[in-house]
Design a protein around this nucleic acid. Structure first.
Ligand code: SF4
Ligand code: SF4
Lengths: 144, 144
DNA sequence: ATTTAATCGGACAAAAATATCCGAATAAAT
DNA sequence: ATTTATTCGGATATTTTTGTCCGATTAAAT
């Protein structure tokens, strides 16, 4: 469904959001440990998220990653996915054909339009703040 | 969503089904040309489909790939996907966590169960025969 | 029997995704 | 000023996926 990079990005963002809710910054090692991901690779992904302005960072001692409260409320999972994997999940097709304008679709077109739409709807209607809250309450978990 | 291998497998199977409907065998070069896929790679995938007994093959001159009429009616797209990509699409999770038994799920669990179920339902309810008929009528297309 | 046209199977190659290493830059604490 | 703890950025390595090559095998046609 998603690339590994994107999965890490989603999990990391949720964790950072939780920490930011309590006014804390999350360090790279912290995040990697908490979401059980390779440290150096996670670093690259966090940099992408910073560039996309989904999260923010400060360097130096006591530095780390954090998120604005407003972002948590407005950012959907779809936003993270788009930043890392692009919009292929929503536009890509069941049979991987290019340039199918719909006039002569591939045989599974109608079926997949249905699936893609429900996927998009779900991802867009789920914001990071609500996921972070579930995590904070211990209802949900980011590793194992 | 699916691997390239799986996409080729689905397209190839649909084309082979169409040919078999008219009592014709499809050769490797024929198939590759028709579904616009790399010949040698397609060969490997067809071998996998033969091993999985989704299609059948005969060697030698006038040989090629074909499909039993009964298979077309009973085989779903899901069957092809399972043969090539395994059941990861149905069991795999939004955040790529392993062994999440549901007692303490990841934050997106509920959302993804919904998506996976609709995906599975669609793939299982679509049989190869119906897709091949659309192709035969010119309503659908396997390349470009 | 020989030629011809097809699949099969193993080794190899290229590309993409995933992951690692390390020095530079930054900023707080000492 | 120096040390310490952090992110940043570039180069490199590993693994997986995708793709190629070619000889062996098979079976029909000549
Ligand atoms: S016809 Fe539809 S499902 Fe098929 S490749 Fe095109 S857009 Fe995708
Ligand atoms: S909790 Fe659910 S969605 Fe999350 S990793 Fe586990 S099975 Fe997948």
């Amino acid at each position: 469904m998603f690339s590994k990079a994107c999965e890490y990005a989603i999990r990391a963002t949720i964790y950072i959001a939780r920490q930011s809710m309590e006014g804390l910054r999350a360090s790279l090692t912290d995040i990697s440990h908490e979401i059980d991901s390779p440290v150096a690779f996670t670093s690259k992904i966090l940099q992408q998220l910073v560039k996309a302005e989904i999260i923010y960072s400060t360097r130096g001692q006591t530095g780390g990653f954090y998120m604005e409260a407003a972002k948590m409320d407005h950012l959907s999972v779809a936003g993270i996915v788009t930043a890392i994997d692009g919009d292929a999940v929503y536009t890509e097709c069941g049979l991987g054909l290019k340039e199918c304008s719909g006039s002569i679709p591939c045989p599974v077109h109608d079926k997949f339009v249905e699936i893609r739409n429900s996927l998009k709807r779900v991802l867009e209607s789920t914001n990071v703040a609500s996921l972070a809250k579930g995590l904070k309450n211990g209802d949900t978990c980011l590793k194992r």
